Simulated assay, not measured.
Amino acid sequence: MKSTMAKELVQTYSSPGDTILDPFSGSGTVPLEAAIEQRAAIGVDRNPYSILLSKAKLNPPETEKKAKQKAKEYLAKIEPHPGKGTESIPEWVADFFHPKTLSGIAQLSPLLREENEHFLLACLLGILHHQRPGFLSYPASNLKPYLRDKKFPRDEYPEKYEYREIESRLISKIERAYRRFPEFDDSLTRSVYMGDTEEIINQEIPNNSVDTIITSPPYMNKLDYGRDNRLRLYFLGIEDYKELDGSPESKKQYRDFLDRFLTEAISVLRPDGNLIFVMGESQRSGAAVDTSEVLTEMVNKNKYGLKMEQVIQDKVPRREINSMSTKSETILALKN
């Protein structure tokens, strides 16, 4: 979900001081915009990289100066040298980096993990792979990690395969992160939970405590979050990224998934609270399935005590269709 959409939904369907929950929060866009707009924010996701990004956004160091100072303190503890700390790293990971660069990443990432330095670790993982000079890998794609050695053969572009030191690139990433530094009301909570959505809602969030739920639940078998973040997940300690993939593949599975979620969600929502869904199309066997229609059919059966307040169609710009994996999105505004 784009930050502009998240901000508008937060402003439209909640008030300052309210509690907003995104039970499929991804990289934390909704919780961040909620916190910026002076709402208590709760995010839930099962992807460790998504959780890291959310924690980094919601709890950054107080100032850019402090963030840089911390980064330099950790960098002083590592000694990048080909082979040091990389003995057990699989070949598919090592292929992305100069051996000395890989050594630095392999030493720095566990240090940051052990100390719960979410912001610094998010910055490090954010510059892992790309073809630009500010990133750490050999020429590679940005969103989904794969080498671009056919477009940039090593013998024709030797400079792209040289050692890339970490410090200057990490400091530059920190500076970019502080260009839009959020201001939070520290009297309002900012919480992030990793795990199964239904279990987290049931165990961690009190009944009738949430004013508004704003979320974009997984589409039907559309995105492979583990595969697409496999390189970053490896340096988070997740070697089997495939365990994070897998979403409902049929209408029945999707209905069952939504039924479990709605049953738990309405228990934590206050009376007259709002549920805002951003949903899209999925291609199944060559045919488009509109997930918003699946949800609408379920709500209209009156099982959950929810009322459909508004339906908004939002066409995805052509330039974004490939990255969004859908041609249109539908915003469904429900009332408890």
Rank of each mutant, 00 (worst) to 15 (best):
K2A: 12
M5T: 14
E8L: 11
P16T: 13
G17F: 01
F24W: 15
G26Q: 07
E33S: 10
A35M: 01
I36S: 10
I36G: 08
E37V: 03
Q38K: 15
R39W: 02
I42K: 02
Y49G: 11
K55Y: 03
N59P: 00
P61T: 11
K65D: 13
K65Y: 09
A67Y: 05
K70H: 09
A71Y: 03
A71E: 06
E73M: 14
Y74H: 13
H81P: 00
G83L: 10
K84C: 02
G85Q: 05
T86E: 08
S88C: 10
F96L: 09
K100V: 09
T101K: 04
G104H: 06
G104T: 04
L108H: 06
L108F: 02
L111I: 04
L111W: 06
L112A: 14
E114A: 15
N116S: 13
L125I: 13
L125Q: 03
L125N: 09
L128Y: 04
F135M: 12
S137P: 12
L143F: 05
R148A: 11
Y157C: 08
E159G: 13
E162N: 15
R169A: 04
R169E: 04
R176F: 10
A177W: 00
A177E: 13
Y178R: 09
Y178W: 08
Y178L: 07
R179V: 07
R180L: 14
S191H: 14
V192P: 00
Y193M: 06
G195T: 11
E199R: 15
N202G: 05
N208G: 11
S209C: 10
V210A: 10
D211T: 07
P217L: 10
P217V: 10
P218D: 01
M220D: 07
N221V: 01
K222P: 09
D228H: 09
L231N: 04
D240G: 08
D240I: 05
D245F: 09
E249I: 10
S250M: 06
K251G: 15
K252S: 09
Y254H: 04
R255F: 00
D256F: 02
T263N: 08
V268Y: 07
D272S: 14
L275A: 06
L275R: 00
S285Q: 15
A287V: 10
A288T: 13
V294M: 02
L295M: 13
E297C: 00
K301G: 07
K301F: 02
G305Y: 12
L306M: 15
Q310A: 13
I312H: 04
S323N: 14
S325N: 07
S325F: 07
T326R: 11
I331Y: 02
